[in-house]
Design a binder for these strands. Structure first.
Length: 637
RNA sequence: GCCGGUGUAGCUCAGUUGGCCAGAGCACCCGCCUUGUAAGCGGGUGGUCGCGGGUUCGAAUCCCGCCGCCGGCUCCA
């Protein structure tokens, strides 16, 4: 058979030849260094046979693309170590993940962080004792099942039962450890050198909270020790950009035990928050939205009409008044639907676009709370569009345009997902088909690349989700554009068409920042707290050299404030060096130092955050430049 | 909610196997210094050791329960 290599040359091989055979045909050194292969662009085990016409790329030890293979093999060594140290341990799954790997176990006794070191030591002992080959074999299903049943490996038995009948059962063995595994794996344990076990966590078997909770051991591995060290160092660096650290440090917000899952916004943080609300208002004005205000607390009747009482009640804060059940709003949509319903609409009036910086309460699980990124009380830059079916596609595309226009102002990168019908949902499949198709069409028309997230839609409709990542690379959903055929029906929302008949409206839900809380959290981690001038709580800090410059400093501050800039003076009796040190660590964008020279010439010495002394400047010119920077909402590059 | 970890001053942390009135730096207050681009000097205030029980002659330290937080799982903006 003929195999095509990356440079388009063909390699002639006997039928049944494997990836490793192909590497050997090219050269023995390549064969020895082979970690895995890519066949027609897909990562595959080097032990599997190739087919005529396959396009083959050999991945070597040291190749980034083969890192998942190294990590997967390292996970197997971890499982072997766990078997040695904790007799009776049951093993579940141990795949490579983005920056490492994990392995799920059921230990006979709970283990602690101290055991992580023991596990790691045992792994090193195993690896030092010899170079173990990873041996692949395919076994009949019944035989594989019997083997794991005899060993008491109940998770492996269930894993086999869950595999489709036509999938061959493969084992990988290294040393005395045999695992049910799809692969791919390294040839031997020799390249496993630079690894580290990182943490312990609970994880439900098959991700199902009704199944047993296993113990997940997280670790990572690299080809070179230096890469491992660099990775661990990056994690340490990222922790410094953690918004939960920066927020209190910069006096933006803080948390208290008496209000778990809710931020206290300090004056500086409130300024940032309000600037973002202002930006949203400005954009909504420009895009034909009208702002509304709807109630916080509603009679349960409203939630029954919307369906939240049945599909979302676990997440709602419920109370009562004079014996009547009430619910604090977790979403604005029913309120906006109610508002829309208060009058009759002509097709000529549509679309109606209601925006509201709506304060929401959601009763999130205590263990899910996470700084500003997951809270129980937050403000959405929410809006609902009520339109005719014919208008829905353009409206959805308009939302996407507006979203990307917004993000462009922060230089933040997003990934796009289309979340489809969840198992728990309202409405019939035909409506879901239509709604999902419409959102997909909007994405396609906009030329956006997106992943489909099956089953992750809202209970009332599918959604486009816009994700961003925090300092540690965890993905968070910010913006969202959702289609909804359900609420218009449940609230009986109609308009009068050109035919003088009643027609059902289509409803779109959209939020671009998502929530201001989450967006600010992500923004802080993205910028490390170095906010653009227009968002900085204190934009300019004026620093006198000595007491005698105080009145000139007040004059400078006055002129800056008159020009609309947020300026403040530091008149404490501290040294200039100390004031600058503090201004730098509090990330004030502009520092102005004034002493005898500046006072005489009517100038100011400019220092920008993160840069050195930029010399004396004329105040009028500086004010003009700063105002322009604020006005354009300029982002530093 | 679940698994593991953790909780000492406003912040960052020390507090040997339970044993003198629980310490340091920063912040804060007072005083001195009058400062030229990342921390001038001296003094002082400040702690229910997360909360509640228990063991003990004696608990920040050991045990139990609760709460918060951290890392995950589940769930979501």
């Amino acid at each position: 058979m003929r195999i095509l290599l990356p440079d388009d040359t063909a390699l002639e091989l006997p039928d049944g030849a494997t990836g490793l055979d192909a590497a050997a045909a090219i050269g023995p050194r390549l064969a020895a260094a082979t970690a895995a292969v890519k066949v027609n662009g897909e990562l595959r085990d080097l032990r599997l046979p190739l087919a005529d016409g396959d396009r083959l790329q050999v991945l070597r030890v040291g190749d980034d693309e083969a890192l998942p293979v190294l990590r997967h093999s390292t996970a197997h060594v971890l499982a072997e170590a766990a078997r040695h140290l904790f007799p009776g341990v049951k093993v579940a799954f141990g795949p490579p993940i983005d920056n490492g790997f994990y392995y799920d176990f059921e230990f006979p006794e709970p283990i602690t962080d101290a055991d992580l070191e023991r596990l790691e030591a045992e792994m090193r002992r195993i690896l030092a004792a010899g170079e173990w080959a990873f041996v692949r074999s395919e076994v009949p299903r019944a035989e594989a099942r019997a083997r794991f049943e005899a060993e008491g490996e109940v998770y492996k038995v269930e894993a086999i039962d869950r595999l489709p009948a036509d999938v061959p059962i493969s084992f990988y063995r290294q040393g005395d450890f045999v695992d049910l595994c799809r692969g791919p794996h390294l040839q031997t344990s020799k390249p496993i050198k630079a690894f580290r076990l990182q943490s312990l966590a609970g994880a439900y078997w098959l991700g199902d909270s009704s199944r047993p909770q296993l113990t997940r051991v997280y670790g990572t591995a690299f080809w070179k020790p230096a890469d491992l060290e660099a990775h661990l160092h990056r994690i340490e660096e990222a922790k410094r950009r953690d918004h939960r650290r920066l927020g209190p440090e910069l006096g933006l917000f803080t948390f208290s035990d008496v209000a778990a899952g809710t931020a206290f916004w300090l004056p500086n943080g409130t300024r940032i928050f309000n600037q973002l609300v202002g930006l949203s208002r400005e954009m909504c004005d420009a895009h034909g939205y009208t702002e509304v205000k709807t109630p916080q607390l509603y009679d349960a009747e409203l939630w029954k009409t919307s369906g939240h009482w049945f599909k979302y009640r676990d997440h709602m804060f419920v109370t009562e008044a004079e014996g009547r059940p009430m619910g604090l709003k977790p979403m604005n949509c029913p309120g906006h639907a109610q508002l829309f319903k208060l009058q009759r609409w002509s097709y000529r009036d549509l679309p109606q676009r209601y925006s509201e910086p709506g304060l929401l309460h959601r009763n999130e699980l205590s263990g899910a709370l996470h700084g500003l990124l997951r809270v129980r009380h937050f403000v959405q830059d929410d809006a609902h569009i009520f339109c005719t079916p014919e208008q829905a596609l353009d409206e959805a595309k308009g939302c996407l345009d507006m979203a990307f226009e917004t993000y462009a102002q922060f230089g933040i990168e997003t990934t796009v997902e289309l979340s489809t019908r969840p198992p728990e949902r309202m409405g019939d499949d035909a409506q879901w088909d239509e709604a999902e198709a419409l959102l997909a069409r909007a994405l396609d028309d906009k030329g956006l690349v997106y992943a489909v997230n099956e089953g992750d839609g809202a209970f009332y409709g599918p959604k486009i989700d816009l994700h961003m990542t925090d300092s540690l690379g965890r993905s968070w959903q910010l913006g969202t554009v959702q289609m909804d055929f359900q609420l218009p029906e449940r609230f009986d929302l109609t308009y009068t068409g050109a035919d003088n008949g009643e027609h059902r409206v289509v409803m779109l839900h959209r939020a671009l920042f998502g929530s201001y809380e989450r967006f600010i959290g992500i923004l802080l981690e993205d910028t490390g707290g170095d906010l653009p001038l227009w968002l900085a709580p204190d934009q300019v800090l004026v620093l006198p050299i000595a007491d005698r410059h105080e009145s000139y400093v007040e004059e400078v501050v006055g002129r800056l404030r008159t020009a609309g800039l947020r300026a403040r003076a530091d008149l404490r009796g501290e040294s200039v060096g100390k004031k600058i040190a503090e201004a730098e660590s509090s990330k004030v964008p502009v520092m102005l130092v004034v002493g005898d020279r500046e006072q005489e010439t009517g100038q100011v010495s400019v220092r920008r955050h993160g840069r050195r002394d930029l010399g004396a400047h004329d105040l009028a010119g500086l004010i003009r430049d700063l105002r322009a920077e604020v006005g354009e909402r300029r982002v530093p590059v």
